[in-house]
Every structure is written in structure tokens, then in C-alpha cells.
Design a protein around this nucleic acid. Structure first.
Lengths: 231, 231
DNA sequence: CAGTATCCATTTCGATACTG
DNA sequence: CAGTATCGAAATGGATACTG
């Protein structure tokens, strides 16, 4: 890690934090990932070597602690690391307000489902096993169908059919589902224009949007002033 | 500017902001610098070519506006850029709390005086011309003596004696004055241990610490809990 | 004042394959 | 599961000199 050679605390912080990928790894840790291969799923474009390197740097800086729990390695944020939450949230809030709309280069089915599956509102869902099947019609075959299985307070993500009865099937393009996820368009609006479809028993169908919590940044007010979600 | 290929708003923001130097340029703009060579003084280790490049990127991203005001080029933050203030402040607050103490590699006399001179409390100072002479005894000759001249609501920084009568002379090591500036030690404490000296008429001498406003981050509470400034 | 232009050493990182 | 090892392409950016 190089240094800016400035005493300014902003520069001191950036000495550590502005390296590529660093704050995304921290974001994943804040989201609750604790194991190496769990972190990888949140930053799939990062090579394992680079992830290792960043984790080491963060451990050395006192942001992360590494434990060799019996049989599994665990990474955890220290108090210093926890205190980055406000910065990560502020960055996301700024990003959603001021960065241009999503382009194809930002779309990633695996990442989307990974995010979706860890943000289900279990309290709003039935206590019995619930299976949501997602079909992204415009995506390459291997990334087209996904199953999110909630049971016993646990949520699993599968890219092959786990075989359980499907509670609801959600069909959309990758772009549409991503835009809904980040709050660029409202679920109801996507349904209205035919870009998103839920196939399920009528009573279930109306519940589904409440089961998906959307991105933490989806409801950040946009600079235009108009509330997209209400439109 | 490369992209992380993620729809996550944190990643979107970092696509733009985690490039080296970018947030320091923004910090300078937030501090009020508006001209190219003014910006350079805040990021002296950055080459002109790189500063140009970053400014261009920021203009293209809608963070900065460039005007060719008659005879001078002016850079200004757009509303999107202004909204980064909270992030920069949070980074500085985090940095002062959690980064290790200052090392020699972070000390820079020019940068220190540049910061000092733009953070004088003019309201607390006499209305007449006031000249503060700084002597950093451990610094290379060319960076040892500085004069900060306040008159008519303007403050100028000189590295050669401007000739005016000196109101107060402040002597310290570069390290001491920097530590005082960022709040690692209190002015009074530095005086008590003989690391800092003010030479002026007695009535003036007690005023001087109130004329210098210190870094905006100097009074951030440190994680230890002990308030260094009160110690 | 506000940049351009050029060169090249260094760094970075992605891809790929392998390991206890 | 949690990494290591290696390699080479590409990008980065520092130094230096120059310009309208």
C-alpha cells in the first residue's frame, strides 16, 4: 500500500481504502459474509489471489480479524471496520443518486440472485418451506434459472432445480429485475408494462413483492425529486 | 475508468471515486480551491498531467464544472460534487480515529502551512495587518521559514520574508506543529513540554492559539476514549 | 496561468493451474 | 475449504521538458 504523503486524515484513510476492491470486500463483510468463499461470491470478478492480498492488508491495518475456527477460517470486522459502515452507506446513497443509469456492464445474474436471496423478509413469509423460482429470459442458459429456498429460517440459493414445489415463479429480464432491485423502477410499474410477471396462486402473487426486500439503497430519494417508486 | 461490473450502488460510486487522488482533488475543491495551480498546492505530489486527467474525468462524470472565465479557468463542484462532502468528512473522521499515528512520510511543511493559512480565524484577529512567522527548526532550509500575512480579510502565505513587522513568531518542529494541527497533541501541551514556542508580546502570545483554527478533524474524539486535547 | 507531450519503470491484476 | 504459485498483458503514473 503506497501513501499520499499527506498528514490530512482524508488522505490517511484513502491510503488504505482507495485500493481497488477494498471497499467492496468491506461491504461484503458488513453484509455478513464471514468465509473466504462466501466473500468470493460477493466479488466474483476478483481473483482469489487478490482477495487474499486485500484481506491480509485489512488484517494488518486492524480492520479485519482472521480466526482459524476449528475447521473453518472466519473473517470478521473489528470495531474500526464496523465504523466504516457509515462510509459505505454514504457511498451507496451517493452512487444511486448521481451515477448514470445501469448499463449492461453492470448486470450480473449471479450477483443479483445472491443479493436477493440474502434479503428476503422471512417474517413476511409463510413458516413452511417457500420456493421462489426466477427465470431471466434474456440471460445465457446457465444463468437463466434460479431457485431461492427458504425454510427453517434459512435461505439457500440454487442454480439447479432443488426439486421442491415452487411457491411462485418470477419472470423478467435480467435488466428489469436488476432495475427493480436497485429501485430504478417500481415492481408494480414493471408488472404494468409487462416487463415482470409473477406466476402463482392469486393470494400468493400479491404477497411476493413484500417478501423481497430490495436493495438497501432502493428507496433513496433521487435528485430529480420525483419518487420513482411511487410513479 | 474501469468498472467493477456490479449494479451495487457502492460499486458504482467506487467505479468513479476509488481512483488514486480523485477524492483528494475533491477535498481540495470542497476546501474552496478553484484554479488549477491552487489545486496543485493541495496535491503537490500529483503530476500536472494526472491532475488534468482526473479533472477531465470528474467533469465528464458531472462532479465538476469547468468554466473559462475571462482570463482564468475555474473549476467548481456541481451539486453532485457538493454532495460528496459528507463522504469526505466521514473518511477524515474515520482516518483520524483509526489510522496509525503520523510518520515522517506524512509530514510536509508546504502542505501544513497551506492548510494553516487558509484556516485562520480572522474574526478573532486584530483588524490591522497581522504577520505570523513560523520557524520549523528541523526542516530543510528552503522549507524552514514561512510567513502568514493577514490583512484586509485576506490571508497570504509566503516562503520568503515579505518584510512586514512580525506580530508573533512560532517555533516548533514540523512534527510537533503537524501533530498539533491534526489534534494529536494540544497546543498547550506542546508548549508545556517545550516542543512549541510563541514569541510575541505577552498580550498577543495568549491570543495566538485562538487565531489558528486547526484541522477540521482535530476535535474528533479518538477511540481510546481519553480526550487528548484535554490531557 | 493552465496545461501538453513523451517516455518508460513499476505496479497491478486477470487468467490459469495447482495444493494441503 | 481456503488458499498458493506463476506468468504476462495492460494500465498507471512519475519525471521531465515543453507550449500558447
Amino acid at each position: 500500500m503506497s501513501t499520499y504523503g499527506q498528514f490530512c486524515p482524508v488522505a490517511r484513510a484513502m491510503d488504505l481504502l482507495d485500493e481497488r476492491w477494498t471497499l467492496l470486500v468491506i461491504r461484503e463483510l458488513l453484509e455478513g459474509s464471514r468465509h473466504f468463499n462466501e466473500l468470493r461470491r460477493g466479488v466474483p470478478r476478483m481473483s482469489t489471489a487478490l482477495l487474499t492480498k486485500r484481506l491480509r492488508t485489512l488484517v494488518a491495518a486492524g480492520i479485519v480479524e482472521r480466526h482459524e475456527d476449528t475447521s473453518r477460517v472466519v473473517y470478521e470486522l473489528t470495531p474500526a471496520g464496523q465504523e466504516l459502515r457509515g462510509i459505505v452507506e454514504a457511498l451507496g446513497t451517493w452512487g444511486i443518486r448521481w451515477m448514470p443509469e445501469l448499463g449492461d456492464e453492470h448486470l450480473d445474474p449471479h450477483l443479483l440472485l445472491w443479493d436477493l436471496h440474502r434479503n428476503l423478509d422471512l417474517d413476511a413469509m409463510p413458516d413452511t418451506r417457500t420456493v421462489l423460482a426466477f427465470h431471466l429470459h434474456d440471460t445465457r442458459p446457465a444463468a437463466r434459472d434460479w431457485w431461492v429456498v427458504a425454510s427453517d429460517g434459512q435461505v439457500d440459493l440454487c442454480d439447479v432445480d432443488p426439486g421442491w414445489e415452487v411457491t411462485a415463479r418470477i419472470e423478467a429480464s435480467l435488466e428489469t429485475l436488476t432495475r427493480v432491485w436497485v429501485g430504478e423502477i417500481a415492481w408494480e410499474q414493471a408488472v404494468r408494462v409487462g416487463a415482470l410477471r409473477t406466476i402463482a396462486a392469486e393470494s400468493i402473487r400479491r404477497q411476493v413483492p413484500r417478501w423481497l426486500k430490495l436493495s438497501a439503497f432502493a428507496k433513496v430519494p433521487r435528485p430529480g425529486g420525483g419518487d420513482v417508486l411511487g410513479a
